[in-house]
Design a protein around this nucleic acid. Structure first.
Length: 964
DNA sequence: GCAATCACG
DNA sequence: GACGTACGTGATTGCA
C-alpha cells in the first residue's frame, strides 16, 4: 500500500518538520450520498427537512473520529459546488443539462450542510462559476508546491486525473485508496492520460459527448498506441478501422471540446489560503448548539454532551458563523433581539451617506451584522418603471442610514446635476453595494421586498438571499390584519413611522421623492429600514416557535423573486385592437344614450344609479323594486334583467332597462379595459407590467393591480375581444395552462367523497355526475338544465352554501333550494362532515388550515349572528380556495428553474388563480407544454399526495383568447 | 372616502 | 325567531 511506500520519508521529516497532509472532501458528492442513503427525516418541531444534514453530520463525525492518531491530516477542507451553472456552460450549453433537479426537500438543506461543516470547525469552500472538482484541483496543485501529501475523498472518477505520487484518491463508499494502479485499472491509462481518455469516452451523466462509438477499451488502445490525444487526432488518417478513423476525423471538434469540459482547472480563484485549513478540534459548545438546533439528539450525545436546550445553547450562538437560513433560527433563542427591537426609535441617529468613505463604513458594518434591512426609494410607485432615487440600510437597532443617489433641488427642472446636492455618484454607489446585496452569507431583509428586487434588478443587482417581513407576518397572522409596514410597526413596535404623505405631500401637491430635502428623506427612508429590521427580529423567530418555517420556506419565500421576474417581463398588447374596440364601444354607447334620453324625455346621466332609481321608481312608477343596503334603489344587472323581462309592475321600464344593460356592458368594457389598458402599456415595448400582491388575500391567493390582469373579460363574446389584444411577441406564442376544476378536486380530497373521487379519476363530467346522483337521472338522460343546477350546487358548496344564496343563484324558491342542499348532503355525507368539522375547528381555534399547513385566521367567528354565519362560510371556503392557491404557488416557484434546466427560454408572465400564462418561442411550444403540465400537475409532491389527479389543460396561440 | 356596480377565479 | 348571506379580488363612477 501507498502509506508503506512513504513511511520512511515521513518519518525522516517528522524529526525536523512534520509531513503536512491535506485532506480535501468533495462535499457535494457527500450531500447526495447522505440524501439518498437515508429516509426523508424532518425536524420534529417544525417539519424542516433535515435528512441529508443528519447523514452529512454523521459522516463528518465518523471521519474526524477515524482520522485521529498517527497519520492524521494536518489540514482539511470540505469543498462544495457553488451553483448549477459554471464556466463549462459557456463552453457547451448542454453541459450537465440532463441532470434532474435537486429534490425539493433537499434544496433547503444545502445551506444547512455548509453550516454543519462550519459547526464541526471545518472550512466550507466554494467558488461561483467553478465546480468543486476545480477547487480541489487548484488546492491540490498549491498544496503539492508547499510540500503537502494530499488525499481527496470523492467517488468522482474525474478526479483520477489528479492522482500521482503525492496525491491519492479515496473512495468514501468502499474506503479504498486509488493510486496510479487504480487509475490504470479503471481507464486503462495512467493518470496523465485520463483527460485524453475521458475526452474520447465522453460522460453521459455530465452530458459530455466525447467520440461516438468509442468506449474505455478503444480509448486506451488508441492513446497507448499514439501516445496522447493530440497525436491520435493528428494521425487519425493512419487508423485502419474505417469507422473509427472516420469518427475521429468527423468529430474532432467535439472531442476537443469534450477535453476542455473534462479538464479540471488548477487555476480557479481560491477564496482562502491553505493555511486556514489547519485542522483543529471542533468547539464543543458550537457543535452541540448546532446539533441541538437541528434536533439531532443521538449524535449530540455521541459528540459528548448532554443535548442542550435551546436556551442553554444561546451563549454559543455568537461564535457560530451563521448561514442566512439558520441565522433566523438562532435568533429565536437570542434573548434580547426581539426585546432590543422595541427600544424607542431615534431618528436623529440616522446618517445621510454622502461620501464613498461613509458608504464603505456602512458596508463594513453590514458584513459585520450579517442580517441587514434594505429599502429603496423611487420616483414613482410602479416597480417596473420607476427610477431609483436612494437606498436605505439598517444594520441594527437605531443604526440606519440613507444613501441618496438621484436627489435634485431643481424641482420640475431635472438637469441631472442634482442641483448642487452632495451625493455619491450613482454608478459608483451601485457598484459598491452590489457585492453586499448579492453576498450569499448576508441576509437582506425587506418589507414587501419584491418591489426592491425589481428596482435593483433594473440596475444590475440581483438581491439574494432575502427575507420579507410582510410575508412572515402573512404566514403568522394572515386574516388577522393587513401586512403593510405602518400597520405592522404600530402593532409590534407601538411606533408610527413618518407617513409618506408627510414628506412627499399628497394629492395634487404630491412630489417625487427625489425632490424631498435630504434631512427629511433620511429620516423617512432610514426609519423604514430600521423598522423593517426590528420587525424581522420580532417576527422571524416566531415562525419556528409556531411551526410555520416550512410554510414560509415552501409557499412564500421564493415568490418575490418569481413574481418580480414575471412583472418585469410584462405581457404584450396590440393597441390598435384596443383602440378600435374603444371606438366601436363609444359609438354604440352614444347611440344608446341618445335613444334612452329620447325615451325618458330629458338628459340624464346613464352612469348614475341614483338618477336611474329616480327615473324607474318615481317617474315611471315601477313597483316591486329592491333597495341596496344603504336604502338606495338597486339598479344592478339582476334588477335590470327583471325589469327587461317585463314582470308584472315593471312593464313600463322594459325598453329602458334593455338599453341600460347594453350600455352598462359597453361602458364597463371601454372604461375599465379598452381605454385604460393602452395607458398602462410601455410606449416602446407595448408591454403591460402588472403588479402582483402577495399578502392581499386571507386565503393565499394573489391579487393583481395597476392594472388588474386577473379580471380580463372572458364570459361574453364582446368581452373576449379584449383578450384578443393580449398577444405574443413576434416568433412566439402565448401558452395558457389551467387547472381543471381544482377546487372541486380539492373538496373531493378533503371531504373524502368516494363518488367525486372516482368520477375525477375516470375523467367524468363532474357536474353531470353530481346531477345524476342528486336527481336520480341516468347520465344518458341528462339535460343541460339539470346539470346547470348541480353545477350551481357544487360551486355553492365551495362557498359554504346557504339556501338563500342558492335560491338567489338559481332563481328558485328558498324552500326548494333547501331541499336540494339536504339531498346533496344525503348523497355526499362526507361533505356535511367536512363542513361541520370545519365549523367546530374554527370556533375552537379561530383559524383553519390548508392541506399544506397555511393558517387562515377568521377572527369574526367570535362574532354573533350574521357576522358569525359569514365567518363560518368563509371558514368552509378557505381551506379549499387556500389549498388551490398553495398548489399553484408551488408550481410557480418551481417553474422558472424547471424551464431553465430544460434549456427553454419560455417565460412565465401571468397568474390568474388557477391559470398560468407563458410566452414561448415557436420552436419551444410543443416541447415546453408537457413540462409545464408536469410541474403544475405534480405541484403538491412530495409533501402531499392527492387522492384525486390534478389535471392541467394547456393551449398555445397567438393571443390569450385563443390560447385559453 | 364610501357606495354601487361589475370584471375575473 | 331574527338576522341577512353565497367565497375571494380590483377598477370605475358618482356623490357627499
Amino acid at each position: 500500500m501507498k502509506s508503506a511506500e512513504h513511511l520512511p520519508n515521513r518519518k525522516r521529516m517528522s524529526d525536523t518538520e512534520k509531513q503536512k497532509r491535506l485532506v480535501l472532501i468533495d462535499g457535494s458528492g457527500y450531500i447526495f450520498r447522505a440524501y439518498h442513503g437515508l429516509p426523508p427525516l424532518t425536524r420534529k418541531s417544525d417539519g424542516l427537512p433535515v435528512g441529508a444534514v443528519a447523514g452529512f453530520c454523521n459522516m463528518l463525525f465518523k471521519l474526524i473520529k477515524e482520522h485521529r492518531g498517527d497519520d492524521a491530516p494536518s489540514h482539511l477542507a470540505v469543498i462544495f459546488d457553488a451553483g448549477s451553472k459554471t464556466f463549462r456552460n459557456e463552453i457547451y450549453d448542454q453541459y450537465k443539462a440532463h441532470r434532474p433537479l435537486a429534490p425539493e426537500d433537499l434544496i433547503p438543506q444545502f445551506p444547512l450542510i455548509r453550516e454543519a461543516t462550519r459547526a464541526f470547525g471545518l472550512p466550507a469552500i466554494e467558488m461561483e462559476n467553478f465546480e468543486a472538482d476545480d477547487l480541489i484541483c487548484t488546492y491540490t496543485h498549491l498544496a503539492k508546491k508547499d510540500g503537502f501529501k494530499v488525499t481527496i475523498i470523492s467517488s468522482d472518477k474525474d478526479l483520477m486525473q489528479l492522482v500521482d505520487d503525492d496525491v491519492s484518491l479515496m473512495d468514501p463508499v468502499k474506503g479504498t485508496l486509488v493510486g496510479r494502479e487504480g487509475v490504470i485499472e479503471k481507464f486503462g491509462v495512467p493518470p496523465e492520460l485520463v483527460v485524453d481518455a475521458q475526452a474520447l469516452i465522453g460522460d453521459s451523466a455530465d452530458n459530455v459527448p466525447g467520440a461516438p462509438g468509442i468506449g474505455v477499451k478503444t480509448a486506451a488502445q488508441l492513446l497507448l498506441e499514439y501516445g496522447n490525444l493530440d497525436a491520435v487526432l493528428a494521425r487519425a488518417g493512419e487508423i485502419k478501422q474505417e469507422k473509427r478513423r472516420q469518427t475521429l476525423i468527423d468529430f474532432k471538434d467535439q472531442i476537443l471540446m469534450s477535453r476542455e469540459l473534462v479538464t479540471l482547472r488548477c487555476d480557479s480563484p481560491t477564496p482562502v489560503d491553505i493555511d486556514t485549513f489547519i485542522l483543529k478540534e471542533p468547539e464543543q459548545d458550537v457543535l452541540l448548539t448546532f446539533l441541538g438546533l437541528m434536533e439531532f439528539n443521538s449524535l449530540a450525545k455521541r459528540v459528548g454532551g448532554n443535548s442542550l436546550s435551546l436556551l442553554q445553547a444561546s451563549s454559543a450562538l455568537d461564535k457560530l458563523p451563521t448561514a442566512p437560513i439558520l441565522r433566523p433560527l438562532y435568533s429565536a433563542t437570542k434573548q434580547g433581539s426581539a426585546e432590543a427591537a422595541i427600544q424607542p426609535i431615534h431618528r436623529e441617529t440616522y446618517e445621510c451617506v454622502q461620501s464613498m468613505e461613509a458608504l464603505e463604513k456602512w458596508i463594513a458594518c453590514a458584513y459585520e451584522a450579517q442580517v441587514i434591512a434594505i429599502d429603496t426609494e423611487t420616483d414613482d410607485l410602479s416597480a417596473s418603471h420607476s427610477g431609483l432615487v436612494g437606498i436605505s440600510l439598517a444594520v441594527g437597532v437605531n443604526q440606519a442610514c440613507y444613501i441618496p443617489l438621484a436627489h435634485t433641488s431643481n424641482e420640475g427642472f431635472d438637469f441631472g446635476d442634482g442641483g448642487g446636492i452632495e451625493q455619491i455618484d450613482f454608478q459608483t454607489a451601485i457598484a459598491a453595494l452590489k457585492p453586499l446585496f448579492e453576498d450569499p452569507t448576508i441576509l437582506k431583509v425587506g418589507q414587501n421586498i419584491k418591489y426592491d428586487l425589481s428596482v435593483l434588478h433594473r440596475h444590475g443587482i440581483d438581491v439574494a438571499p432575502y427575507d420579507d417581513t410582510m410575508l412572515i407576518s402573512y404566514v403568522l397572522e394572515g386574516g388577522l390584519h393587513g401586512h403593510g409596514m405602518d400597520e405592522l410597526s404600530e402593532l409590534h413596535l407601538g411606533h408610527t413611522p413618518i407617513p409618506f404623505k408627510q414628506v412627499a405631500g399628497s394629492g395634487k401637491s404630491a412630489k417625487s421623492f427625489k425632490y424631498v430635502a435630504l434631512k427629511e428623506a433620511t429620516e423617512y427612508a432610514a426609519e423604514d429600514a430600521d423598522v423593517t429590521l426590528r420587525l424581522w427580529h420580532i417576527l422571524k423567530p416566531r415562525l419556528q416557535r409556531e411551526g410555520l418555517v416550512t410554510v414560509y420556506e415552501t409557499l412564500e419565500r421564493q415568490m418575490p423573486a418569481v413574481l418580480s421576474e414575471m412583472e418585469l417581463a410584462g405581457i404584450r398588447i396590440d393597441p390598435a385592437i384596443l383602440q378600435s374596440l374603444s371606438h366601436d364601444f363609444g359609438t354604440r354607447m352614444n347611440a344608446i344614450e341618445q335613444e334612452a334620453q329620447a325615451l325618458v324625455g330629458r338628459p340624464f346621466n346613464m352612469n348614475s344609479p341614483q338618477q336611474l332609481g329616480q327615473i324607474f321608481y318615481d317617474e315611471m312608477q315601477l313597483t316591486g323594486g329592491k333597495r341596496t343596503a344603504s336604502g338606495q334603489w338597486a339598479t344592478d344587472v339582476k334588477v335590470l334583467e327583471e325589469i327587461a323581462e317585463g314582470k308584472p309592475g315593471l312593464e313600463a321600464g322594459q325598453p329602458l332597462a334593455r338599453m341600460l344593460l347594453d350600455y352598462r356592458q359597453m361602458a364597463k368594457l371601454k372604461g375599465t379595459y379598452t381605454d385604460a389598458l393602452t395607458g398602462y402599456a410601455d410606449k416602446n415595448t407595448q408591454r403591460i407590467h402588472t403588479s402582483f400582491h402577495l399578502a392581499a388575500t386571507p386565503t393565499g391567493r394573489l391579487s393583481s393591480n395597476e392594472p388588474n390582469l386577473q379580471n380580463i373579460p372572458i364570459r361574453t363574446a364582446e368581452g373576449r375581444k379584449i383578450r384578443q389584444a393580449f398577444i405574443a411577441k413576434p416568433g412566439h406564442k402565448l401558452i395558457s395552462a389551467d387547472y381543471s376544476q381544482i377546487e372541486l378536486r380539492i373538496l373531493a380530497h378533503i371531504g373524502d367523497i368516494p363518488q367525486l373521487k372516482e368520477a375525477f379519476q375516470r375523467g367524468d363530467d363532474i357536474h353531470a355526475m353530481t346531477a345524476s346522483e342528486m336527481f336520480n337521472v341516468p347520465m344518458e338522460e341528462m339535460t343541460s338544465e339539470i346539470r346547470r343546477r348541480a353545477k350551481a350546487i357544487n360551486f355553492g358548496i365551495i362557498y359554504g352554501i346557504s339556501a338563500f344564496g342558492l335560491s338567489n343563484q338559481l332563481g328558485i324558491e328558498r324552500g326548494e333550494a333547501g331541499r336540494y342542499i339536504e339531498t346533496y348532503f344525503d348523497r355526499f355525507p362526507g361533505i356535511k362532515g367536512y363542513m361541520d368539522a370545519t365549523k367546530a375547528f374554527v370556533s375552537a381555534n379561530g383559524f383553519v388550515m390548508t392541506l399544506m399547513g397555511r393558517k387562515i385566521h377568521i377572527p369574526e367567528i367570535n362574532g354573533k349572528g350574521a357576522l358569525k354565519s359569514f365567518a363560518e362560510r368563509a371558514a368552509i371556503n378557505a381551506p379549499i380556495q387556500g389549498t388551490a392557491a398553495d398548489v399553484i404557488r408551488r408550481a410557480m416557484m418551481r417553474m422558472p428553474q424547471a424551464l431553465l434546466d430544460a434549456g427553454f427560454t419560455t417565460k412565465m408572465l401571468l397568474q390568474v388563480h388557477d391559470e398560468l400564462i407563458f410566452e414561448a418561442p415557436d420552436s419551444e411550444v410543443e416541447a415546453v407544454i408537457p413540462l409545464i403540465k408536469h410541474i403544475m400537475s405534480d405541484a403538491t409532491l412530495p409533501a402531499l399526495e392527492m387522492s384525486v389527479p390534478l389535471i392541467v389543460e394547456a393551449h398555445a396561440a397567438l393571443n390569450w383568447d385563443e390560447a385559453h
